Amino acid sequence: MKRVKSPRKRKVEVVVISDVHLGTYGCHAKELLAYLKSIKPKKVILNGDIIDIWQFSKSYWPTAHMQVIKHLTGLISKGVEVTYITGNHDEMLRKFVGFRLSSFSIQNKVVLELDDQRIWIFHGDVFDVTMQHAKWLARLGAHGYDLLILLNRLVNFMCHKLHREKVYFSKGIKNRVKSAVKFINDFETVCADLAIENQFQYVACGHIHQPEMKEITTPKGTVTYLNSGDWVENLTSLEYYDGQWHLYKYQDEVAELHQLTEAPAVASLDSNALFLDLMSEFNLKRA
């Protein structure tokens, strides 16, 4: 049998990923795994809401979700620096801020200096009024959002069968509802204002599931605002290489990455077997 040659991995200095929401129906874990396998990063920043602890359920944890975790721990075991920035859906991890194990750490924010340019990276839920004053409302909204995404996937499955274009419910709502548009604009402005005041040239967030890369100018100055988007609707990330930040979109390279969405070496394993395999990488044993 002729052996298929693996595609060469792209070298990336820094990759920023946010709002994966592992453990929910909307998470595109297979696509994320394919993307992670296509790059060779020096530094990985997980900018919040990677595991959706709010909606975590033992009854829904597909193998693909465990494969993402295993791939990330594999990077750590190889010495790749992986930083987990806490978000609102994984806020319980904030009690472990400052924790370090090998090349892995948990933080609330990260400041990097790349080619004499400073970037401030944080999740962004601190600017969400519903998070600050009505967490129960935010949690209710999260469950409703997950149901909307699940319904959207069912509708798109039928669209595919009928050879019709896909529809995106939540994207349409965000783009059409004035209050949603205002919230996004206000969020970006607040982030920019604070970054300029603290003399950062770049600021990178997640949280609002709205991938973006643009300059924002205020009376106080100019900053480049970046948002890594999500792996629920947009399937995007931020990458730094060749001295510049880039907004990566999975759909732009879906054909090339399609062959990486399945991993023959581990696809036959269930989540429990993957967990045991993961532990063996760190020479750990379950009690």
Results as ranks from 00 to 15, higher is better:
N108P: 14
L154M: 14
V126P: 02
I149P: 00
F127P: 04
D186I: 08
R153C: 03
S105E: 10
D186V: 08
G144P: 04
N108M: 04
F99W: 06
N175E: 11
G172I: 12
L137A: 09
V110S: 03
M158E: 03
H163A: 01
T130M: 13
L194T: 06
A204C: 05
G124K: 05
M158P: 03
N175H: 08
G141Y: 12
R118Y: 14
Y202G: 00
A138K: 15
S170N: 08
H160Q: 09
L147E: 03
Q210F: 13
I149Y: 10
K109M: 09
V110C: 06
Y202I: 02
Q117A: 02
V129E: 10
L101E: 04
L101G: 07
L140G: 08
Q199P: 02
R153L: 11
L162H: 05
E215C: 12
K109D: 12
T130V: 14
V190W: 02
C159E: 08
E188L: 01
H160V: 05
A204R: 03
K174E: 06
D125T: 07
R100N: 14
E215L: 15
D115F: 07
L151C: 14
K171I: 09
E215W: 15
G221S: 04
A192C: 00
V126N: 05
N108F: 04
V111I: 15
E215V: 13
Q199V: 14
Q117F: 05
D116W: 09
E212P: 06
N108A: 03
R164L: 13
L114S: 03
I149K: 14
L147H: 09
V126L: 13
V181D: 00
K174F: 03
L137N: 09
L112D: 00
K182R: 12
Y168A: 11
Q107D: 01
M131V: 11
A180C: 13
G141A: 02
L147P: 00
P219H: 07
P211K: 12
T130G: 00
I149N: 01
L147I: 11
H143S: 15
N175S: 10
I196S: 00
F99A: 08
S102A: 06
V126F: 12
N198Q: 09
C191T: 04
D128Q: 04
R118V: 09
L112F: 15
I216W: 08
N152G: 01
K135D: 00
T217N: 01
K166A: 04
A142W: 04
R118H: 13
F99L: 13
I196G: 00
R164T: 10
I216Q: 03
K214W: 07
V111T: 15
N108V: 01
V126Q: 15
L140N: 09
F200L: 12
L140T: 13
A192M: 11
R164N: 06
Q201G: 08
R118I: 07
M131K: 10
